[in-house]
Amino acid sequence: MGKLLFYIFCFLAFNSCIELNNPPNIQGTWELLSATTIRNDSSIVQDLENKRMIKIINQHHFAFLNHDNNNGKDTTAHFVAGGGAYSLVGNQYKESLEYCNFRDWEGHNFTFSVFIKGDTLIQEGIEEIEELGIEQKIIEKYTRVKVGRKRNIYATPLM
C-alpha cells in the first residue's frame, strides 16, 4: 500500500510539473469582459457598458483596440490602441509595448500572469512606469471571440 501511494504521489507531482511548463494557448482574438485597476488602496472597476475592447494575439505579437460604442460622436468619445511583441513562458506573459496612442507608454515592458479557464483568459499583473508615477495592478478577463461572431454581448465573466 505504501508503494502504491508513493507511485500515485510521483505521478501527480510529475503531471503537475508538466502543466506548469506548458504555456496556455493565448493565441487568438479576445474581447474584454471586465477590467479592474488597483492603485494604492483603491480598486476601480472599469465601466464597459459603452465601450468595446479586443486584444489580438498571434505567434509573436499582440495588439489591443479599445473604443466607445457611439462612434466618438458624444462626450463618451474614447479610443486607445497599442501593440508590440510578447513572450510567454509557462503562464508568465510579458508585453513589450512598441506602439500606443499614449506615447509615453511606448518602450515599456509589462509582466503578467495569464490563465485560461474554458473560453476565458485572465490576465493580471503590475503596470509600472516610474517616470509617469504609474504603479497599478490590473486584472482583466477576456472571452475568446469565435470565428464569424460579429459582436459579443457583455456577460458576467466566468471565474
Rank of each mutant, 00 (worst) to 15 (best):
S96H: 13
G84K: 02
H60K: 11
G72R: 00
T75Y: 08
F64C: 01
A85D: 12
F64K: 02
Y93F: 15
C100V: 07
I116N: 01
F115K: 14
N71L: 15
F79R: 13
D104T: 08
A81M: 14
G84T: 03
M53R: 08
N91W: 08
I54G: 01
T76L: 13
E106C: 13
I122W: 03
N101D: 15
N58S: 03
F79Q: 14
C100E: 14
F79G: 09
I57H: 02
I56F: 11
I54M: 06
G72A: 02
H78R: 02
L65R: 12
H61I: 01
F115D: 15
S96D: 12
I54E: 08
A63W: 04
G83S: 03
V114R: 03
K117S: 09
G90S: 05
F110Y: 13
L121N: 02
A63T: 03
N69I: 04
V114L: 04
T120C: 09
H78L: 06
K94R: 13
H78N: 11
L88Q: 04
N70F: 08
T111V: 10
I122P: 05
L121V: 03
G83A: 04
S87V: 06
V80I: 14
V89N: 11
K55F: 01
T76I: 07
I57V: 14
E106W: 06
A77N: 07
K117L: 10
I56P: 00
L121S: 05
K94T: 15
Q123C: 13
A77P: 00
L65F: 11
T76V: 09
R52C: 03
Q59P: 00
F62S: 01
L97N: 13
N71W: 11
R103D: 15
K117M: 05
F62Q: 00
M53P: 00
I57E: 01
I54C: 08
N91M: 07
L88W: 03
Q92G: 02
F62G: 01
S113H: 12
T75A: 13
Y86F: 13
N91K: 10
H108P: 06
F79E: 14
L65M: 10
N66D: 15
H78Q: 08
Q92C: 09
L88A: 05
F102P: 06
G125D: 05
F62H: 03
V114W: 03
D68G: 00
R52F: 07
Q59A: 11
A63Q: 05
I116P: 01
S96M: 08
N109F: 02
E98I: 05
L121W: 00
I122H: 13
N66L: 00
W105Q: 12
K117Q: 11
N66T: 00
N58Y: 01
A63V: 02
N91C: 10
F102Y: 14
N71M: 14
H61F: 07
T111Y: 02
A85T: 11
E124P: 00
G83I: 06
N66C: 03
A77H: 04
S96P: 01
L97E: 15
L97W: 08
R103A: 15
F64N: 03
H108T: 06
M53C: 04
G82T: 06
N109T: 08
A77E: 06
D104S: 13
R103W: 11
D104I: 06
K73R: 15
N91E: 11
L97M: 12
G118L: 05
T76K: 10
V114S: 03
H67M: 06
E95L: 07
F64H: 10
G118E: 12
G107M: 09
N101E: 10
E124H: 13
D119L: 11
I57Y: 02
K55L: 10
